[in-house]
Design a binder for these strands. Structure first.
Lengths: 230, 230
DNA sequence: CCATTCATTCATTCATTCTCA
DNA sequence: GAGAATGAATGAATGAATGCG
């Protein structure tokens, strides 16, 4: 089943999809006009409503966007196009909700919560930024990490590593970080940015400049490489 | 690198580079003839179009390097070279036009926005400076801040701080500023300029002169650092 | 991973201060 | 005093950090 994406059913399980869809869209706009990120909303929310919600979202809720969007609609709908969010506990709700990346039933269930919260936030906002800040909890815009500045020496080393391998494993990065005495995370980000730069610098047709063996995925054991592990 | 100066690919990702390149060039000229800075355009733009593009975005769109400029062209491009390439004896001048910094795709995306905005701005301009001023919002040409002059005592203290740490955190700067009773911003700029001077004075190979503790990335946690206040 | 932001650096300008004739 | 030097202020460019999909 589910292979039947023709007409948008506007009612499922006694839930008015149209309405939810509408609300999700509006919600995003409202969120943006308060200058809040999904993360902020998510955190504030789970602080306010208890973490009960963010939990259930994670497991279940298969991606049932077909309930809400017809294929072609999805294309046009700039607000809610593709993707399944990164799973960040607090962030989960608003993110998935805005994407309508949940079952109609759950959506229906969260809607009033979001509505209530947003109304409150807006009220606070109107009555002064200070109040909003206070409402959404700690930092309204949690401050940026202080920009690291690498010493020329460190840069040299980083670059030489990069030339040898653009995708160092998590292990390698840890080592590099240790050797240079920078935060591992900082090193990780450096590689991300460096790859990005590389990509921009390499005009269209060009083959990836010299750096040989792209991703030697010669899986050396502890190659959990990816970024997730914190 | 980039030793491939043959024909400019004029189409990438379905984007006409030639056209974008052309436009970027023209845009800069148009901006300059209205006497506007990138920052002004950026601000006005995001005021007009909603949260949009920052100064750096404008910059990136306007400059568009390697993707768009062929080596020999770069030579002729008077705008580009006259800006980047004034040779100031004593200052090394960096290799120009070797890094590119925006994807054709993004460029394509911003183009119409810039075009529309610029057309409007020009119209305003024609119909009287007042209108332009109004259009771009804030001060069209706010005058230069008055040059601060530090007392010898202040300088001494500043320098001693600098020797200990060339990159004081926002917090530290605030303290220094307070102690010396200068504007925090002024102190910040002083450090920027001081670092610049240091760099000029330190020949290439040299290791960063004595000042130990290179750039404390070991940011002391609650580092409110940034400048946002005001 | 990509697009974007924003703090910082880089390059330049221009108000001062310093020379020296 | 006029020009050379100096350096605070500024505009542009860069890149580390972030958000989001």
């Amino acid at each position: 089943l589910v292979s039947n994406p023709q007409t948008a059913p506007s009612e499922v399980d006694g839930v008015n999809l149209e309405e939810i869809r509408e609300f999700a869209k509006a919600f995003k706009i409202r969120r943006l006009s308060l200058g809040l990120t999904q993360t902020q909303v998510g955190q504030a929310l789970s602080a306010a409503e208890g973490p009960a919600y963010s939990q259930s979202a994670i497991c279940r809720h298969t991606i049932l966007r077909s309930h809400f969007f017809l294929p072609q609609e999805a294309q046009e709908n700039t607000i809610g196009s593709s993707l399944t969010g990164k799973l960040n506990p607090g962030l989960l709700y608003p993110a998935r909700f805005e994407k309508l990346d949940i079952t109609p039933k759950s959506a229906q269930k969260i809607k009033p919560v979001l509505e209530r919260w947003m109304a409150e936030a807006e009220a606070r906002h109107r009555s002064g930024m200070q109040n909003l800040t206070e409402f959404i909890g700690s930092e309204p815009s949690k401050k940026r990490k202080r920009r690291t500045s690498f010493t020329p020496q460190a840069l040299e080393i980083l670059n030489s590593h990069f030339e040898k391998n653009t995708h160092p494993s998590g292990q390698e990065m840890t080592e590099i970080a240790e050797k240079l005495n920078y935060d591992r995370e900082v090193v990780r980000v450096w590689f991300c940015n460096r790859r990005q730069k590389e990509k921009r610098m390499t005009p269209p047709g060009e083959p990836p400049p010299t750096h040989e063996g792209p991703y030697s995925h010669s899986g050396s054991a502890g190659d959990a490489s990816s970024c997730h592990d914190l």
